Simulated assay, not measured.
Amino acid sequence: MSEGNIAADQLRLLIERIERLEEEKRGIADDIKDVYLEAKATGYDVKTIRAVVRLRKLEKHVRQEAEALLETYKNALGLE
Protein backbone atom coordinates (compact mmCIF):
# COMPACT_ATOMS: atom_id res chain seq x y z
CA MET A 1 0.00 0.00 0.00
CA SER A 2 1.24 3.45 -0.79
CA GLU A 3 1.20 6.30 1.68
CA GLY A 4 -1.56 7.95 -0.35
CA ASN A 5 -3.82 4.93 0.07
CA ILE A 6 -3.07 4.70 3.78
CA ALA A 7 -3.84 8.40 4.28
CA ALA A 8 -7.01 8.11 2.20
CA ASP A 9 -8.13 5.04 4.17
CA GLN A 10 -7.44 6.79 7.46
CA LEU A 11 -9.36 9.87 6.31
CA ARG A 12 -12.30 7.74 5.17
CA LEU A 13 -12.40 5.95 8.54
CA LEU A 14 -12.33 9.24 10.42
CA ILE A 15 -15.16 10.63 8.32
CA GLU A 16 -17.23 7.47 8.80
CA ARG A 17 -16.71 7.69 12.57
CA ILE A 18 -17.84 11.31 12.54
CA GLU A 19 -20.92 10.38 10.51
CA ARG A 20 -21.84 7.61 12.97
CA LEU A 21 -21.39 9.95 15.93
CA GLU A 22 -23.50 12.63 14.24
CA GLU A 23 -26.26 10.06 13.76
CA GLU A 24 -26.04 9.06 17.43
CA LYS A 25 -26.16 12.74 18.39
CA ARG A 26 -29.37 13.20 16.38
CA GLY A 27 -30.87 10.19 18.14
CA ILE A 28 -29.95 11.54 21.56
CA ALA A 29 -31.34 14.97 20.64
CA ASP A 30 -34.62 13.29 19.68
CA ASP A 31 -34.66 11.42 23.01
CA ILE A 32 -34.11 14.66 24.92
CA LYS A 33 -36.91 16.32 22.97
CA ASP A 34 -39.21 13.43 23.89
CA VAL A 35 -38.40 13.83 27.59
CA TYR A 36 -39.21 17.56 27.44
CA LEU A 37 -42.51 16.73 25.70
CA GLU A 38 -43.27 14.19 28.43
CA ALA A 39 -42.51 16.80 31.10
CA LYS A 40 -44.82 19.28 29.36
CA ALA A 41 -47.59 16.67 29.08
CA THR A 42 -47.21 16.02 32.81
CA GLY A 43 -47.77 19.72 33.51
CA TYR A 44 -44.22 20.93 34.10
CA ASP A 45 -42.99 24.20 32.64
CA VAL A 46 -40.40 23.19 30.05
CA LYS A 47 -38.79 26.62 29.92
CA THR A 48 -38.09 26.43 33.64
CA ILE A 49 -36.79 22.87 33.37
CA ARG A 50 -34.37 23.99 30.63
CA ALA A 51 -33.17 26.82 32.91
CA VAL A 52 -32.60 24.37 35.78
CA VAL A 53 -30.67 22.00 33.49
CA ARG A 54 -28.45 24.92 32.40
CA LEU A 55 -27.88 25.95 36.02
CA ARG A 56 -26.97 22.42 37.09
CA LYS A 57 -24.22 22.35 34.46
CA LEU A 58 -22.50 25.30 36.13
CA GLU A 59 -20.06 25.01 38.99
CA LYS A 60 -21.53 26.23 42.26
CA HIS A 61 -19.43 29.40 42.50
CA VAL A 62 -20.16 30.34 38.88
CA ARG A 63 -23.88 29.81 39.46
CA GLN A 64 -23.78 31.92 42.64
CA GLU A 65 -21.97 34.74 40.82
CA ALA A 66 -24.53 34.68 38.00
CA GLU A 67 -27.44 34.70 40.45
CA ALA A 68 -25.93 37.60 42.42
CA LEU A 69 -25.42 39.59 39.24
CA LEU A 70 -28.98 38.88 38.13
CA GLU A 71 -30.27 40.12 41.51
CA THR A 72 -28.17 43.27 41.19
CA TYR A 73 -29.58 43.98 37.73
CA LYS A 74 -33.15 43.27 38.84
CA ASN A 75 -32.78 45.61 41.80
CA ALA A 76 -31.31 48.34 39.60
CA LEU A 77 -34.30 48.04 37.28
CA GLY A 78 -36.88 47.87 40.09
CA LEU A 79 -37.98 44.35 39.23
CA GLU A 80 -38.12 43.17 42.86
Rank of each mutant, 00 (worst) to 15 (best):
K40D: 05
V35L: 08
R20C: 03
M1E: 08
K33T: 07
R50K: 14
E71M: 11
I18D: 08
L55D: 11
V52Q: 11
R50Y: 01
A76P: 04
L11W: 07
R17Y: 01
T72F: 08
E19V: 12
K60P: 04
L69S: 06
R17D: 07
E24W: 01
L37F: 09
V62D: 01
V62M: 01
A41D: 12
D31C: 03
V52H: 09
T42N: 13
R20D: 09
V52F: 08
K25M: 05
N5I: 13
A68P: 00
I6E: 06
A68E: 05
A7Q: 08
E65K: 15
E24T: 05
E24G: 03
V35P: 09
G43R: 00
D45W: 10
E80M: 14
Y44L: 14
I6C: 01
I18P: 02
E71K: 12
Y36E: 06
V46L: 03
D9E: 15
G4P: 11
K57W: 08
K25S: 07
V53T: 09
V53R: 14
K40L: 10
Y44R: 12
L79T: 01
G78A: 02
L11P: 03
R56E: 15
S2T: 13
T72D: 10
E19W: 08
A51G: 00
A7M: 05
N75P: 06
N5V: 13
E22N: 02
K57V: 07
I28V: 13
G4Q: 13
K57D: 12
V62Q: 03
R56I: 12
V52A: 15
A66Q: 15
E3V: 09
G27Q: 00
A68N: 05
L79S: 03
A76G: 14
E19T: 13
L77G: 03
I49Y: 05
R12F: 02
T48H: 08
L70N: 04
